[in-house]
Amino acid sequence: MSEESSGRGPIDAKVETALAIFFVVFSILFIWQSTKIPEPPRNISVGSGTFPIIVGTIMLGVSIALAWKRLREVAPRLFGRGVGEMTVVPLDDDDTGIRDWPAVWAVLGSFLALIVMLEPLGFVLTFALFLFGLSSFFSPGHWLRNLVTSLCFSLFFYYLFTQVLLQPLPNGILAPLF
């Protein structure tokens, strides 16, 4: 890992700008959806669309202000005089930077796989596979430790929930075994 990639690169700055603009778009969509809420024929003084529209409008205002501020930072020439701040969030006590993007994609992918496979494969199998897979991705040298821990974790919680707490968990393809 080079030092450079530990900070915030140009993509990061773009994503931050995109997020600020996204909130503006989201507010508009939200207000549009709010206006489509049917008002029930009932004598309620404030209808079901009123609060969403108020909140949506305030959110639109706040998000425009944020996006404006952001755009002035990014492109001072286009949007009036720049405020002279840094183009990215200052790095002091930054504990949210990512140095290892492949790892993030791996986590998100395996997390999604865990959710998708939970009911078809059953609790014990998916949880053991997920834990073993992810931990071995990060510390391949300790695969045996990871395997044992994963199996113990899954079996322990399966037993605890189904036998002690009487909360059924999905059995999936192992159903004939249980």
Partner: peptide, 27 residues
Amino acid sequence: PEALLYPMILAFSVLGVYSLSRNVADL
């Protein structure tokens, strides 16, 4: 070890949310 702890946190979260409602959509 963190390589095990973080996946366990995710697993724990999934178990918690699932056992609340037994509903995959919540996940």
